[in-house]
C-alpha cells in the first residue's frame, strides 16, 4: 500500500511539472497551449540524445535550455502576434504546432520507439518497509518537489513572479499599472516550456519515447489544470498529487473504472466548484 502511494507520487509529480507549465502560460496569456505535450516530447528526445554523451545532469540542463529557447520563440513568433485574435485561433495554431513538432521528432529521431537507460548513479533500489523501490523513482519525486518549491519561492519573492501572479488574477489591471506583459510573457512561456522539457527528460527512463508520447500526458495535464483551477499554481500542485493517487489506487482497487476516475473528478469539479480546488480567482 505504501509503495502504491509512492508510485502515485511519482506519477503525480510528473503530471505536476507538465501541468504547472500549462498553468504558467495560461495564467499570463489566457491561452490553452495544445503544443505543450509536444514540448514534453521534445524534452524527452533532447534529453535522450544528450544523456548518451553528457550524462543525466547534462541532459536535464540541455533539455531545459533548448526548450526554454523553443518557448521564447513560441511566444515571440506565435503567441504575441495572435494575442488579439479570437482564443480559438491560438488553440488551432498551437494544435497545428503539436502536429508539426511530432513530425519533426519523427524526422529527426525516427518512428521506432526509443528507450533511455536509468542513469547509473540512480540505478538500483532501496528497501522501503520491506519492499524494494527503485531509487530513480524517488529522484522523480524529489525533482517535482524541488520544482514546486523553487517555483513558489520565485512567484512570491521575485518581481516577475509578482507580475505573473498579478496578471493571472487580472491581466487588464496589471497592464494598466504599467507592467509590460509582452516582456514578462517571453520569460514565462520560456519557463513553462523549460519545465515541460525537464519533465520530458526525467520521464525518459520510465516511458517509451515516441513522437506521439506528448498526447498521452497532455490530456491528463489538462485534467489537472481544470481540477486545480485554471491559472492556479497551488491548485495544480494539489490536483496533480490527488490525480496521481486516484489514478494509481484506482488501477489497483477498481481497475474497471480507473481510466474514468480522473474524468469523473473533472466533471464533478466543473459542476460543484467550477473555479477548481484552489481557484478563488479566474
Amino acid at each position: 500500500m505504501l509503495v502504491q502511494i509512492l508510485n502515485g507520487l511519482v506519477y503525480g509529480g510528473l503530471l505536476y511539472i507538465v501541468s504547472v507549465g500549462l498553468v504558467l502560460i495560461f495564467g499570463l496569456r489566457r491561452i490553452v497551449n495544445f503544443a505543450h505535450g509536444s514540448l514534453f516530447m521534445l524534452g524527452a528526445y533532447v534529453g535522450f540524445s544528450v544523456a548518451a554523451m553528457g550524462g543525466f545532469w547534462g541532459a536535464l540542463l540541455a533539455a531545459a535550455i533548448v526548450l526554454a529557447l523553443v518557448g521564447a520563440l513560441l511566444d515571440i513568433a506565435i503567441l504575441q502576434p495572435l494575442q488579439r485574435e479570437d482564443p480559438i485561433v491560438t488553440v488551432l495554431v498551437t494544435f497545428g504546432l503539436l502536429l508539426i513538432l511530432e513530425d519533426f521528432a519523427q524526422f529527426v529521431w525516427g518512428k521506432d520507439f526509443l528507450k533511455s537507460p536509468v542513469p547509473t548513479m540512480f540505478s538500483g533500489s532501496v528497501l522501503i518497509f520491506g519492499e524494494s523501490f527503485p531509487v530513480y523513482r524517488l529522484v522523480v519525486i524529489a525533482v517535482a518537489a524541488l520544482v514546486a518549491l523553487g517555483l513558489s519561492v520565485w512567484l512570491r519573492l521575485s518581481k516577475i513572479g509578482l507580475y505573473v501572479r498579478a496578471s493571472s488574477a487580472d491581466p487588464l489591471t496589471t497592464a494598466m499599472q504599467g507592467v509590460n506583459t509582452d516582456r514578462v510573457s517571453v520569460i514565462v512561456v520560456a519557463l513553462g516550456a523549460a519545465l515541460a522539457g525537464i519533465s520530458g527528460t526525467i520521464s525518459a527512463p520510465l516511458l517509451a519515447l515516441s513522437p506521439s508520447m506528448g498526447s498521452y500526458i497532455l490530456i491528463e495535464s489538462f485534467i489537472v489544470v481544470v481540477v486545480g483551477g485554471l491559472g492556479s499554481f497551488a491548485g495544480a500542485f494539489i490536483a496533480a498529487i490527488v490525480i496521481g493517487q486516484v489514478h494509481n489506487l484506482g488501477l489497483v482497487y477498481v481497475p474497471w473504472a480507473a481510466t474514468m476516475i480522473p474524468f469523473l473528478l473533472m466533471v464533478g469539479v466543473l459542476i460543484w466548484r467550477p473555479t477548481g480546488i484552489a481557484g478563488s480567482h479566474v
Partner: peptide, 8 residues
Amino acid sequence: NDYAPFIQ
C-alpha cells in the same frame, strides 16, 4: 504510461 501499480 505507468505500470508501477500493476508491477506491485
